[in-house]
Simulated assay, not measured.
Amino acid sequence: MDSWAVNERTRPLAAAFTTVIVIIVYLVEEMHVTRPGRSKEPSIFRDLTRKRHMERILRGGQDYCVSYLRMDVGPFLHLSSIFRDKHLLVDSRHVSVEEQLAIFLHIVGHNTKNRIMRVEFLRSGETISRYFNNVLRAVCAIRDDFVHPPSGTCHHEIETNPNWYPFFKDCVGLLDGTHVDASVPSNEIPRFRGRKGPTQNVLAVVNPDLQFTYVLAGWEGSANDFTVLKDVLARPHPEGLKVLEGKYYLVDAGYTTMNGFIAPYRGVRYHLKEHSGRPPTNPKELFNLRHSMLRSRVERAFGTLKNRFKILTSHPFFPFRTQVKLVLGCCIIHNYIAGVDPSDRILLEGSTQQDEYINASQTRSQRAQREENRQWVELRDNIANDMWNRYNGFV
């Protein structure tokens, strides 16, 4: 049999074999692409749709980007580059760092459920969850870059305001607590139940330009603010709150005046609404008025934080440990935006809104504690009298 006849017989077999190989390769690729929960649409079209979605977010105009990501395009791209340069996030084969960060910001900014994000980004629920947690870890890893403890120097906003300087020149922060909705197992609800259901009690210190300098989250909502403060002071560095020698934090009437903390006078008008149309009539009222003007900045910071990140105002759907990390992560991003984009719309809305109303863990005798507290009460009295004398032109 000549070679021509052999080729004629084997040619159909070779063609059939090639066809089988092509079909097998195609099916293998489809098995990798078409997993449970994923669209059977060819991956090239899904990738194109995702690309257009990101372009619409970043090029749809400032209002669109801020509404979707809760920050402007410039800060968003800069934050992405920080994570990439620090090797905290990496571009995967199909998901860029920018898309990972966009997924995270949209969830925390709008409290968006996983099933909605699957539609928004054409990703599986497992992919959304994985990258959300990756970004949260990356955000917490840059805490020291954007949450700076007080330096002890007088803040420029105090120094340049005659209502506060020189009276509060030694103030290094404004301290207060807030409640954030929490989801906990049913057997733990009584411990976490606050006035508005289960919450976690968050204690924070803010400087006059609305940036957080200390944050502690995770205390149950039933705990009072002073109990949380005592725990903060008993914690070792760096978890604990540092009290600088001769310096102090301004606190509200829920706390007490003691070493490193000055509260307003009780039983005296305090909130700004109470002073509306009524000038102060004595040193204590004047002190409380200016104390309230300055300390209200911490309320503004909390308001801005919750306005930007709606996940902090809704019952979360994450494990409690993640809920605690989310509070810290949101504070870090808040500080980042305040530092790189002072003209941020959400931050400006919070800045212009109307005002609302030594290691402390060392054991000491009650007598020594009372004596020390008395000295800080006298300091408050001296500040109030000096403030009153200057207010009336006696100095």
Rank of each mutant, 00 (worst) to 15 (best):
A301Y: 06
G37C: 13
Q362K: 09
A263E: 01
F76G: 04
V184L: 08
D176F: 03
R84F: 07
R50S: 08
N207P: 02
K273V: 11
I158Q: 00
Y214T: 03
I24Y: 05
G109V: 11
E126H: 13
D72N: 11
D145W: 14
S129G: 08
W219A: 01
F302I: 03
I116K: 11
D386Y: 05
H291C: 03
L105Y: 05
Q353L: 09
H237C: 11
N307A: 03
I107V: 15
S151H: 05
K196M: 10
G350P: 02
D91I: 05
F76M: 05
R35S: 13
R56P: 14
E274C: 06
F167R: 00
R56S: 15
L244P: 01
M117C: 13
V73H: 04
T227H: 04
G37D: 10
F83C: 03
A253M: 09
F192Q: 01
G173M: 00
N163G: 01
R297D: 06
T49F: 12
N382D: 09
G173Q: 00
Y248C: 01
R308K: 12
T34L: 14
G60S: 07
E349K: 14
G197T: 08
W376L: 07
A5M: 12
A384L: 04
I383T: 06
L203V: 09
D381T: 06
D47Q: 15
V268D: 03
L136F: 15
V327N: 00
A301W: 01
N259E: 07
V377G: 02
S80I: 10
S92Y: 11
N373A: 06
H155D: 02
L58A: 08
S186N: 14
L347Y: 02
D181K: 04
R193V: 14
Y265Q: 02
N111C: 05
A253Q: 02
D85C: 13
I116M: 10
R84Q: 15
R308I: 02
I337L: 07
V6S: 07
P319L: 14
N373T: 04
E285P: 03
R295A: 00
R364E: 08
N307C: 05
S151G: 07
V20T: 14
Y165D: 01
K86T: 10
K247V: 03
N359H: 07
S276F: 10
F309K: 00
R115A: 06
I383A: 01
H53Q: 08
E8H: 09
D47F: 15
S314Q: 12
S80L: 10
K196Y: 12
P279Q: 11
Y214F: 07
D47R: 12
V215L: 04
V135K: 03
K247G: 00
L272I: 08
Q100A: 13
T227A: 10
P42T: 10
P236T: 04
P279M: 06
P264W: 00
E30R: 09
R52K: 13
V377W: 04
N7M: 15
G109N: 15
N382H: 13
H156E: 12
S67L: 14
R11S: 06
S80W: 14
Y214P: 00
G240P: 01
V340N: 07
D355V: 04
D209V: 11
Y336E: 06
W4R: 15
N335D: 08
N114V: 14
G61D: 12
P342V: 15
E41A: 14
D344R: 06
I383Q: 00
N207S: 02
F318G: 07
E99C: 15
A253K: 11
